[in-house]
Write a protein that binds this DNA or RNA. Structure first.
Length: 669
DNA sequence: TGCGCCGGCGCC
DNA sequence: AAAGGGCGCCGGCGCA
């Protein structure tokens, strides 16, 4: 087996261009002194031979980037790249480091300082950090130098390498050497790390990383007219709000917010006893809370108004410029393929459902968006986890029988039978609907360790469910308020509601007895506030150093992510290299945890239908393999649309053929 | 002026 | 006894 590190130097990345032109390559083998600088032609030749050679493994730092460069340079290389990934012959020292750190419980933390790591242009583990960790060398000053050659290779494009300045020729060779040295040292460290540092999962993560990088390269487009309308509206509302709150001094004349003044107003509104944020290093006693809930509950008309008006700030500051840029060039979302639960993170997974931001995204001419998401994915993975760990799951039985698990839990709360309650839910009887809604919150939250107090808070904040009203104890509701901790932050809730919530807790555990056992195990493994390692089942990826709630959450969140990545890989593979697939020529654009959004070729209605169905089929099959005991319960259906929207739905014609969803009210042109 | 921390909030 | 989790981005503030 030959192991080479491979690195490319390129023109600079620009908006809309994540795979810029190649300038040169560098490689290194295990033998000292084997590092070489390759001119463009040599780099192409080396890569072509290596990627097609069954005995050769390639190692890179952020290798997905180099793969993208080589694929853009020569599209004939796309198929061999997919094949090499399938064979597990491609490696990335950053993905390896993440896997090792997850096993150690040190993901995202600098072990020397204990602080969170900086994010270097989407790469959690820049090569300089790994070189420091494994080789004890500080190469970080290069990064701060604006004249560094790493930013200037376009100047050397076409210049024979013999004439390159010494530094420019040395830098790529040096990085190739370091990358391979890090790779081998990771091998040694991993063998001394619990679960082998999770390195058995590297190939799966590499595949996902490349599929995501292709999605980044392809990018998203927005509609110019829609963006103009959005900007006009958002800026008008933002200006109105600013004017309204400037008089009270909450905003300064320059438009910036005076947070200290706001805190003073909140303190006054709460008679000197305002809600306080969680303690931190800098503020051991916490600070005055100014979140929406605090403002709305302040009893002060102006602050309530402020609390209700918060959204357009976010739209303006976070999204407006981004979506406007998408009218002229593709928006390139950035993905981090591997966070601590094995989920994917991205800067483009938080598009607001409301406010019209999603709706300005429009599929390119000749394409339609195709969104397929898994229904209730984490309920399925939670049930699968219980079966693997305990040998049974009432939730799995219910899901596999096609029952509505929210109605089932609601029936437990009411002391009613499922058959009794279901018709009432379907008839939209208010009490039945309210209890089903309540059950939904517990089903999604309790499996992660949510307690009565935060249940009350979540229910109140999100769904306006009053526990005491439901339990016919309105007489005591709100009389006494207590402080609870919700996601490490203190919140005020009604004590009587908390008591009601605790009763629901018990009933919920009766509905899903496997959860009682899982919680007991999590409790005993963290006795006295301790930490424990937890395995993501199926994938056998270990996450170290977990507290109680992480122990409960990680297995089902991780298992879902594992299945989604498998599905994403198979879908992408057909899109890029399988000419027989109806998906060939279509493109993945986003992955949002349990949802894959693509642009499907739409030139032919039958082919578009086939592509959408094929994608959903591949997703269902991948998840059935991932959660085999829940196979009958896996749901994923395609929805087609010209624009993005949370309202997009599956639409079929009389023949069953998929149709493109239309927004309910079409604006006149 | 730059940087890190913090609170807040968007999504699944 | 107590405890949903996972992220990324923004503006404000305080420190160097």
């Amino acid at each position: 087996m030959n192991v080479w590190s491979f690195d490319t130097e390129t023109w600079l990345i620009q908006p809309g261009l994540l795979a810029p032109p190649l300038v040169c390559g560098s490689v290194a083998a295990a033998a000292p002194g084997s590092e070489r600088l390759l001119d463009k032609a040599q780099a192409r030749q080396f890569f072509r031979e290596a990627i097609t050679s069954p005995d050769t493994h390639l190692v890179g730092a952020n290798l997905a980037y180099d793969l993208g460069v080589m694929a853009a340079d020569d599209p004939n290389l796309v198929a061999p790249i997919f094949a090499a990934l399938e064979a597990g012959r491609l490696h990335c020292v950053q993905i390896r480091e993440a896997l090792i750190d997850i096993a150690r419980g040190l993901y995202g933390v600098d072990p020397s300082t204990g602080r969170k790591l900086d994010d270097d242009e989407g790469a959690r583990y820049p090569l300089a950090l790994l070189v420091q960790r494994y080789l004890g060398l500080d190469i970080s000053e290069d990064k701060r130098n604006p004249k560094a050659w790493r930013l200037r290779y376009a100047e050397l494009d076409g210049v024979p390498v013999e004439r390159w300045p010494t530094e420019a020729a040395a830098y790529p060779k040096r990085d190739a050497r370091y990358t391979l040295d890090v790779f081998f040292r990771q091998e040694a460290v991993a063998s001394d790390t619990p679960n082998g540092g999770n390195l058995h999962a590297e190939a799966d993560q590499m595949r996902a990383a490349f599929a995501l990088h292709l999605a980044s390269i392809w990018g998203l487009r927005t509609n110019g007219d829609s963006v103009a309308v959005l900007r006009e509206r958002v800026e008008r509302e933002w200006g109105e709000n600013r004017a309204k709150f400037q008089a009270a001094g909450i905003y300064r004349a320059d438009g910036s917010k005076d947070s200290k003044r706001l805190a003073a107003l909140v303190t006054a509104a709460y008679d000197g006893q305002p809600p306080i944020t969680a303690p931190s290093n800098r503020f051991p006693d916490g600070q005055v809370a100014t979140d929406r809930d605090t403002l709305i509950g302040s009893g002060d008309a102006l602050l309530e108004d402020l609390g209700k008006s918060g959204r357009v700030d976010k739209y303006k500051s976070t999204y407006l410029d981004v979506v406007e840029a998408g009218t002229s060039l593709p928006i390139n979302p950035r993905f981090n393929v591997l966070v601590s639960t094995t989920r994917v993170s991205s800067d483009y997974q938080q598009l607001p459902q409301k406010g019209g931001i999603r709706e300005v995204h429009e599929a390119r001419p000749g394409f339609v968006y195709c969104s397929v998401d898994y229904g209730g994915l984490e309920l399925r993975t939670m049930a699968q986890r219980a079966i693997w760990e305990l040998g049974f799951s009432k939730m799995a039985e219910a899901l596999n029988s096609g029952l509505d698990v929210h109605t089932l839990a609601a029936a437990e709360f009411l002391g009613a039978s499922y058959d009794e309650l279901l018709p009432k839910v379907k008839a939209k009887e208010p009490l039945a609907v309210a209890f089903r809604q309540l059950a939904k919150i517990l089903n999604f939250g309790k499996g992660g360790g949510m307690t009565g107090g935060s249940l009350v808070y979540n229910a109140r904040a999100k769904d306006r469910v009053s526990f005491c009203l439901l339990a016919k104890r309105a007489d005591v509701c709100g009389v006494e308020r207590v402080v609870i901790t919700v996601q490490r932050k203190p919140k005020m809730v009604c004590r009587a509601c908390v008591e009601v919530a605790k009763e629901l807790d018990t009933k919920w555990l009766n509905a899903w007895p496997e959860q009682r056992e899982l919680q007991q195990r999590a409790k005993s493994s963290t006795y006295g506030g301790g930490f424990a390692d937890v395995m993501i089942p199926g994938a056998n990826i270990l996450r170290g150093g977990c507290g109680y709630t992480q122990i409960l959450n990680t297995p089902f969140q991780g298992l879902g992510a594992v299945g989604c990545k498998l599905a994403m890989w198979r879908v992408s593979r057909e899109m890029y290299v399988d000419r027989r697939s109806p998906l060939y020529g279509s493109r993945l654009v986003l992955m949002v945890h349990d949802e894959l959004i693509s642009e499907l070729l739409a030139n032919d209605a039958q082919r578009m239908h086939d592509a959408a169905e094929r994608k959903a089929y591949l997703m269902r099959e991948a998840m059935k393999e991932t959660t085999p005991d829940l196979a009958p319960a896996i749901e994923a259906e395609p929805a087609l649309s010209r624009i993005m929207s949370k309202d997009v739905a599956t639409v079929r014609g009389n023949s069953g053929r998929l149709l493109v969803w239309e927004p309910p009210t079409k604006r006149a042109a």
